[in-house]
Amino acid sequence: MDVFMKGLSKAKEGVVAAAEKTKQGVAEAAGKTKEGVLYVGSKTKEGVVHGVATVAEKTKEQVTNVGGAVVTGVTAVAQKTVEGAGSIAAATGFVKKDQLGKNEEGAPQEGILEDMPVDPDNEAYEMPSEEGYQDYEPEA
Rank of each mutant, 00 (worst) to 15 (best):
G14Q: 10
E20M: 06
A56R: 10
G51E: 01
I88P: 02
Y136C: 09
S9K: 15
V63Y: 09
N103S: 06
V70W: 03
V74P: 02
Y125P: 15
F4W: 07
N103A: 10
P117Q: 13
E110S: 02
V118S: 05
V77T: 07
P120H: 05
T33I: 09
A91Q: 08
V118Y: 06
V49A: 14
G47I: 09
A107V: 06
E114K: 06
V118D: 13
E139M: 12
K80F: 14
V118W: 12
A19C: 06
A27T: 10
P120Q: 06
K43W: 10
G36L: 02
V63W: 08
A17E: 11
A78N: 04
A29I: 13
E61W: 02
A91L: 14
K12Q: 01
K97I: 14
Y125W: 11
G41I: 09
G68E: 03
V63K: 00
G41V: 05
A85Q: 07
A17Q: 13
G93Q: 06
G68S: 07
I112H: 13
L100C: 06
V48G: 01
E35K: 06
G84P: 03
T81H: 02
A53M: 15
I112Q: 13
P117I: 12
G111E: 13
N65W: 11
K34H: 09
E131D: 08
Q62V: 13
V70T: 04
A69L: 01
S129Y: 08
T33D: 00
E110Q: 11
S129A: 07
D2Q: 15
A27Q: 13
K96E: 10
K34A: 09
T72S: 01
V48E: 01
E13F: 11
K97D: 15
V71L: 14
T92E: 06
K12R: 02
Q99V: 10
D115E: 10
G73W: 13
I88V: 06
A17I: 10
D135R: 04
K102P: 11
T59N: 04
L8M: 02
E137T: 05
K97Q: 03
A76P: 03
D121N: 13
N103C: 13
T92K: 12
K58Q: 05
G67A: 08
I112L: 13
G84Q: 14
S42A: 15
G93D: 06
L100W: 10
V82I: 14
F94D: 05
V3T: 00
G31K: 13
V95H: 12
V16E: 04
K21A: 13
H50Q: 01
G106N: 11
G25S: 14
A140S: 13
T33R: 01
D119E: 12
Y39F: 11
V3A: 04
L100N: 10
V48W: 06
V95G: 04
K45S: 07
K97R: 07
K97P: 13
E57R: 04
V52P: 01
E57T: 11
E130P: 12
H50C: 10
M127W: 13
D98W: 05
S129W: 14
K43Q: 08
V118N: 07
G51H: 01
N65P: 03
D119I: 02
V74M: 14
K80W: 15
G93F: 08
K32H: 05
L113I: 14
Q109E: 11
V55D: 01
G47Q: 00
F94P: 06
T22D: 11
